[in-house]
Structure formats: structure tokens, C-alpha cells
Design a protein around this nucleic acid. Structure first.
Length: 264
DNA sequence: AGTACCACCTGACGGC
DNA sequence: TGCCGTCAGGTGGTAC
């Protein structure tokens, strides 16, 4: 599930449950989630310290560790099936727990990932991490000049470019479809054919769609009636015009759009 | 720079 | 019931 809005939800969850608790032990139950670091090193860096604050960059959740040392940030990526569980430290951990952080005081945070497509990493700073991973600016914090600078002059397809994490970070399969829908652009539309008012509309749709998705997914509000996400199935009525939603495959991903509303 | 395809993983679901 | 293909909100590598 995790795209930008879902990761924002995990950020708020971690903030509400796990800040300021001293880490007693880190148990890695499946090291395949660890990206180039050993279970030993992860435990060494975390044990005895505590989570002090979080930041989200795209689909990455960065967690700052105190007291200050060398690797001051834990980086979490949730892949397609990752999630977090904070709970009382008793009994079996949740199914598919890959990393278990035990706090003093009898609580624990489980990093759960069924398909193991997520990642756990360490970083010196968010800035260095973003550079090392070649991530573009966070999609929700990109203003109009930034958006123009990142996407202007590109010739790829709208959806492909929106999902390119080095152009903008955070947009996934669902949000890309939602953005294209609100911008009234065919997901395959070539960016260099989207100019002037339509390019500005793509920026507005990006900001507005992501902001609303965050309010719904992370904030618990109801999805507005004019959103495409609840209608991701072939033949579903388009929430704007009622015509049948169509499914195509783009970048090997299921892509839904309204053939009547969205133009190339 | 851009696209297509494969690989990495596990599970759910429908057809036969 | 078992087997098989397809699909699922992830990224990274390859070849062209």
C-alpha cells in the first residue's frame, strides 16, 4: 500500500507511539530487508538510543536518533506491503515482522513486510540520504518553480514521469492515476505535448490530489466523491462523467483512467 | 532521456 | 483438491 500518503500515516503513527523511548534491543528476524547493513550494525547503532523526530521524504520515513553519533538517522521504506505496529512487548510479534525494536518499559515497534520489498537503512543526514538515493524533491513540498524545473523539458509519458522518484519523490501507482485524472490528462500523454495552461493544471492536480490523499489516508477523512481511487476497476463509472473506466498496462502496472475525460 | 522487460518476494483469486 | 496464470499502492538492473 505505501505511497506518499501512507508513509505520512506511518510517520504520524511513529510520532504518536515511539518517540523518546529508549531502545533496549533490536532483533532482525529476516535480514533481506536490510540494505547493505548487517543486523549487528543496525543493533549497534540503535541500542541505547531513542527516536527523537521523524521526517518523510517521498516514500521514505527518516527517523532521527539521539544522542548524536555518526549514523543519526534510521531510514525505512515500506515497499508494497510494509507497515508498522507498536504494541506491548509480549507474545508472538505480528506475522511477517522483519525487524523488531524493543523499548525499555515493555513496548515494541515491529517493522512488518510481507513481500519484503521494503528497505531498512542508516544515514548520516536526510540530505546525504536523498543525494545517495538520487531522490527528487518531495512531491508534496515541490512548489510551482520546482515542479516546472523538474518536469519541464521532459518528453516521457505523464504517468511514467510522475512516478520517477528522481524527478519527484513520493508518487506511486495510485496517486499517479489520481493526478492524471484530476489534470484530465491521459496517463500516456507525452509531457512535451502538455504545455501552458495544461502543464499548470498538472501541477495543481499534483498538489491538490496529494494533499487530499494525505487528509484521507493519513488523516482519516472520507474520500471525496470525485476521486478515482475508489473506482479502480474496469467498467466502473467515472466519478466525473459516468463513462466506463478503462484499464491499461503502463510500466507493467495496472493503470486506470477515463477515456472520455482524459485526453492525450 | 526514455521504454520494455526481468528480477526480487509472498499471497489471493479465478479458471480448469 | 491441485495446478496455473494473473494481479497486487515497491525498486533496481539490463538492453536497446
Amino acid at each position: 500500500m505505501p505511497e506518499l500518503p501512507d508513509v505520512e500515516k506511518f510517520k504520524r503513527y511513529l510520532d504518536a507511539t515511539s518517540l523518546g523511548r529508549r531502545i533496549a534491543e533490536v532483533a532482525v528476524t529476516d535480514r533481506r530487508l536490510l540494505d547493505g547493513i548487517s543486523p549487528r550494525r543496525l543493533a549497534d547503532r540503535l541500542e541505547g538510543r531513542w527516536f527523537a523526530e521523524t521526517r518523510r521524504h517521498g516514500k521514505w520515513l527518516l527517523v532521527r536518533l539521539e544522542p548524536e553519533d555518526r549514523d543519526d538517522w534510521l531510514a525505512l521504506h515500506f515497499g508494497m506491503t510494509g507497515t508498522l505496529f507498536h504494541e506491548k512487548d509480549a507474545g508472538e510479534p505480528p506475522e511477517y515482522t522483519r525487524v523488531l525494536v524493543r523499548f525499555t518499559g515493555g513496548r515494541r515497534l515491529a517493522v512488518v513486510s510481507m513481500r519484503m520489498l521494503g528497505r531498512v537503512d542508516l544515514a548520516r543526514s536526510p540530505e546525504r540520504f536523498v543525494r545517495r538515493r538520487d531522490l527528487g524533491p518531495d512531491a508534496l513540498r515541490a512548489d510551482w518553480p520546482t515542479f516546472r524545473e523538474r518536469l519541464g523539458g521532459r518528453r516521457g509519458m505523464v504517468k511514467t514521469t510522475l512516478m520517477n522518484q528522481s524527478v519527484l519523490a513520493g508518487i506511486g501507482n495510485i496517486s499517479a492515476d489520481e493526478i492524471a485524472f484530476h489534470a484530465r490528462l491521459h496517463p500516456r500523454a507525452r509531457l512535451d505535448h502538455v504545455s501552458g495552461e495544461r502543464f499548470r493544471r498538472l501541477f495543481d492536480a499534483t498538489q491538490e490530489s496529494l494533499a487530499v490523499l494525505v487528509r484521507c489516508i493519513a488523516g482519516g477523512e472520507a474520500m471525496p466523491d470525485d476521486f478515482l481511487s475508489p473506482h479502480r476497476a474496469e467498467g466502473e463509472p467515472c466519478p466525473r462523467c459516468g463513462r466506463a473506466v478503462r484499464r491499461i498496462v503502463l510500466n507493467q502496472r495496472g493503470t486506470y483512467y477515463c477515456p472520455a475525460c482524459q485526453r492525450v
